[in-house]
Design a protein around this nucleic acid. Sequence first.
DNA 1: GTCAATTACGTTCTCCGTAAGGATG
DNA 2: CATCCTTACGGAGAACGTAATTGAC
Lengths: 310, 310
Amino acid sequence: MNLSVRHMRAFMALATLRNFTRAAESCSLTQSAFSALISNLESDLDVKLFARSTRNVDLTAEGRAFLAIVSHLLPETERALEQMQDYVRCQRGRVAVAALPSVASGILPGLIASFARDHPGVEVVVHDAASTVCVDLVRNRQVDLALCAAVSPRPDLLVETLATDSFYFICLASHRLAGRERLAVDEVIDEPVIVFEPNSSVRQHLDAAIYPRQWVRSRQLNALSTAAGFVAAGLGVTMVPTLGLPAFAQLGLRAIPLTLPLNERDICLVRRSGEDSSIAAAAFIEALRARVQDAMRALAPEARIHREAR
Amino acid sequence: MNLSVRHMRAFMALATLRNFTRAAESCSLTQSAFSALISNLESDLDVKLFARSTRNVDLTAEGRAFLAIVSHLLPETERALEQMQDYVRCQRGRVAVAALPSVASGILPGLIASFARDHPGVEVVVHDAASTVCVDLVRNRQVDLALCAAVSPRPDLLVETLATDSFYFICLASHRLAGRERLAVDEVIDEPVIVFEPNSSVRQHLDAAIYPRQWVRSRQLNALSTAAGFVAAGLGVTMVPTLGLPAFAQLGLRAIPLTLPLNERDICLVRRSGEDSSIAAAAFIEALRARVQDAMRALAPEARIHREAR
DNA sequence: GTCAATTACGTTCTCCGTAAGGATG
DNA sequence: CATCCTTACGGAGAACGTAATTGAC
């Protein structure tokens, strides 16, 4: 016995309308095809479900029992199919994303908000972590994708550069370099700077950028916002990429574009290779590709000044 | 989309075994047919459910969602089909029977007990009522069948005589006729008898049997058991059919076969014509036909004496 | 080279629609 | 005779099996 949704729909139509001709219409079938369908259902179940005279159609006792069953089963089945269509239309699902703290705070909020508008019902979970942790989360299948700094190529990973980020020198408006439009590395190399922890991707990029030279370190901190407080309090200067700028958006601070030997820091999308993304994850990646560059441009102080000028 | 049990079973098999060849076997299909089946399911749902390399089969994210759905839906559907099979195998259902009190108390208990052994899960409901009420219950579809006295033929009723019943003269062992093997109507016509209510089928048959003559009525009662008490207390004699004898099975009472002009009282099966019985009702009727005569013979005092003698 | 899934292809069976048949009011 | 369900029949498409093909270890 191979009961199908078609069988149940036909049965329900006939049980409700008690008329083959109209039930057939409601199923978009000819009366004869519909008759055969019901007849097959009956012989498959090995039960007469309808007592039909040429003039009247009525449920048998067993037909009433089947009606009681199908009344529950059919809606449940159709709900299940609807649910699957929601996955296909990307109105249901789950995307887990690992991201560097700067990415998570800088561009994900706006991006997730607009993704949620297009795909209500899709849950987006964000893990913020350092680059190496992000990559491990991808490899362990704890997340669908990661947004982090460039990683060494591995056969099980698919890495794609989504955007490039550049660095800014952060100081008080009263600092001697505060009036400059752009700075070169040699102009700031002797400045004691507030640096971040060695495993942060910002620190790693900055260290690598001037290797084998080294920065003059005044302090070492963890969070961007802490560094912002220190700079605002006149306790030093620092350097951060565009994505880190929102933490420094407070009065009295200047962010000046900085030219480094290794000037661009890649923001990469990392996935497992040889594995298709879920529909929801694919849609999220599509949204990322479409909007990451714009989102980053919006964070640059030039853009901000431009916006304020309007 | 026409999801069927076959689809769900195939999906569950593959999701469980993660191997096309073995899943195909478990569904009694060749590997190629099974592959096509899964492929059709995917294209019907418009979702890739399995990520397959030539070496490995794994669920996709959407496949896992479908698994969660089907894990509930399939067992429920199979339970529903099982339930229908129970109706077919007559292990589930309901039979409503209307019967004369004498039938209900005389032969139905044993018959229902043996029917229940063969058909556990089938509920048998008994309405005991006078013949005319029984017939109305059938016509109003409140019961599937009635066991009652002969009724005047109607086009909407199907009447079948299942058994014939004969009458007995009931008296104390000390009564002047107590020693007789058989009595004729003339021998008891002048005896004041305890009669039953005019609409009882026993009364109607007894009155009709000697029409236009009439019985000498000493008392009029309703229940057989009441009459038995009266006779045992020496308050009179009465006459009942075989089916009424169990109520008089007490010490000191004699039941003597009586020959009346209208000697046989038909016990009829009454159904609605032009309508098939439910499977359960049909089985009950079958059991009735097979066992009613034996059940009635077992009630006759001759049989009882015979049993006691062994 | 072997195991496992897909593709190719011919047969069979099912499903559907047109059209004729039969029962009932 | 009009209505409504069933049966008859032919064609389109689906399902299945055999067998060849592709791909990964």
